[in-house]
Amino acid sequence: MEDNPVYTTKEIEKAVDNYISQFKEGYFSPLALMARLSEETGELAREINHYYGEKPKKATEEVKTVEEEIGDILFVLACITNSLDLNLSEAFHTSITKITTRDKDRWTKKEEN
Results as ranks from 00 to 15, higher is better:
1 M>T: 15
1 M>H: 11
3 D>Q: 13
5 P>K: 15
6 V>P: 03
7 Y>K: 10
8 T>E: 03
9 T>F: 14
10 K>Q: 05
10 K>N: 09
10 K>G: 07
11 E>T: 05
13 E>G: 05
14 K>R: 01
14 K>P: 02
15 A>H: 10
16 V>K: 08
17 D>Q: 11
18 N>W: 00
19 Y>N: 06
20 I>S: 14
20 I>C: 10
20 I>H: 05
22 Q>L: 15
22 Q>G: 10
22 Q>R: 06
23 F>S: 08
24 K>H: 15
24 K>N: 13
24 K>V: 05
26 G>F: 02
26 G>Y: 06
26 G>I: 12
28 F>Y: 07
28 F>H: 13
28 F>P: 00
29 S>C: 04
31 L>S: 11
31 L>V: 15
32 A>S: 14
33 L>T: 00
34 M>P: 00
35 A>Q: 09
35 A>L: 12
35 A>G: 02
36 R>E: 13
37 L>A: 11
39 E>Q: 10
40 E>G: 04
42 G>D: 08
43 E>P: 05
43 E>Y: 03
43 E>M: 01
44 L>Y: 01
44 L>V: 02
44 L>W: 00
46 R>D: 00
46 R>C: 06
46 R>T: 02
46 R>H: 10
48 I>Q: 12
48 I>D: 01
49 N>H: 03
49 N>V: 07
50 H>F: 07
51 Y>F: 05
53 G>D: 06
53 G>N: 14
53 G>I: 05
54 E>K: 08
55 K>D: 13
55 K>Y: 15
55 K>L: 11
55 K>P: 00
55 K>M: 07
56 P>M: 13
58 K>D: 09
61 E>V: 12
62 E>A: 07
62 E>W: 04
62 E>S: 15
63 V>L: 12
64 K>L: 13
64 K>P: 03
64 K>G: 07
65 T>W: 04
65 T>I: 01
65 T>H: 04
68 E>W: 00
69 E>F: 00
70 I>Q: 06
70 I>S: 03
71 G>K: 00
71 G>W: 01
72 D>M: 02
72 D>T: 05
73 I>W: 12
73 I>R: 11
73 I>H: 08
74 L>R: 06
74 L>G: 05
74 L>Y: 03
75 F>H: 14
76 V>K: 08
76 V>N: 07
76 V>Y: 02
78 A>V: 03
78 A>G: 13
79 C>K: 06
83 S>Q: 13
83 S>C: 11
84 L>I: 11
84 L>F: 00
84 L>D: 07
85 D>A: 08
85 D>W: 01
86 L>K: 07
87 N>L: 05
87 N>M: 04
88 L>D: 05
88 L>W: 08
91 A>E: 09
95 S>G: 09
95 S>I: 02
97 T>H: 09
97 T>C: 13
99 I>L: 14
100 T>P: 01
100 T>R: 11
101 T>N: 13
102 R>S: 07
103 D>W: 01
103 D>V: 02
103 D>L: 15
105 D>I: 08
106 R>T: 13
107 W>V: 09
107 W>D: 03
107 W>K: 08
108 T>G: 06
109 K>M: 11
109 K>T: 08
110 K>E: 08
111 E>A: 12
111 E>V: 14
113 N>W: 04
113 N>V: 09
